[in-house]
């Protein structure tokens, strides 16, 4: 464990806590894409298949359970919770995320480290996570103004993978471990997808203005 990876995991955890806070505090999920939440639930379920077979550390197991549990709870909340589901922007959240799932799975069948079930699902989860934010970014552009908690949620979610990239660089130089190039490339694509969001987020913070993404 290094400081970059710890910062990444904590930033990821903070993004989830901010999202939970927004939904429970405002009893609303307006501005949140259910499709992105479903994609993330799929990412964690596909990536942590080894949850009960390979024990790495208490920290590792606890965080995996938190990520799986929170993503499923958020999807349940947005689909089933009486009050919350009423505020879901169904008409704006129209990204065809099934194509992202299908594309990622086909790519994982072609490009992976080993042709085993676990490795293919791992690669699938890495590719899917890189594009999982797309429905959310599209929804933000369509919904005009973005409430603070939603903006902070997306910001932390984007920042966590940037910390992971620093972690891979750190591990490359200190442990002579090139690691997995699949993670490298997908992580760079994932972080790049947030580039314009980060720009508008920073400008809104600098000008102390409301976050507005150009349609």
């Amino acid at each position: 464990m290094n400081i970059f990876r710890l910062a990444g995991d904590l930033t990821h955890l903070i993004s989830i806590l901010v999202l939970l806070l927004k939904i429970y505090a405002t009893k609303s999920c307006s501005g949140i894409s259910l499709k992105t939440q479903e994609l993330y639930a799929l990412v964690f379920l596909a990536r942590y298949l080894d949850l009960f077979t390979d024990f790495v550390s208490v920290y590792n197991t606890v965080m995996k359970l938190v990520f799986i549990g929170s993503s499923l709870a958020i999807v349940w909340c947005m689909r089933m919770h009486r009050i919350v589901k009423r505020s879901y922007n169904r008409e704006l959240d129209t990204f065809r995320h099934y194509f992202l799932v299908a594309g990622s799975f086909v790519l994982a069948l072609v490009v992976h480290e080993k042709f085993t079930l676990q490795e293919i699902f791992w690669a699938f989860s890495i590719y899917l996570e890189a594009v999982a934010i797309l429905p959310q970014l599209v929804l933000l552009q369509r919904s005009g103004n973005v409430d603070n908690l939603t903006g902070q949620y997306v910001f932390f979610l984007g920042a966590y993978r940037a910390f992971y990239i620093l972690n891979w660089i750190y591990r490359y130089f200190t442990e002579q471990r090139f690691g997995r190039w699949i993670s490298w490339i997908s992580g760079l694509v994932q972080t790049a997808l947030y580039a314009d969001f980060f720009y508008y987020y920073f400008m809104s913070w600098k000008n102390n203005a409301k976050l507005q993404l150009p349609a």
Partner: peptide
């Protein structure tokens, strides 16, 4: 092998 290199990552 590189497979388990980053197994400890989330």
């Amino acid at each position: 092998s590189s497979i388990n290199d980053l197994k400890d990552e989330l």
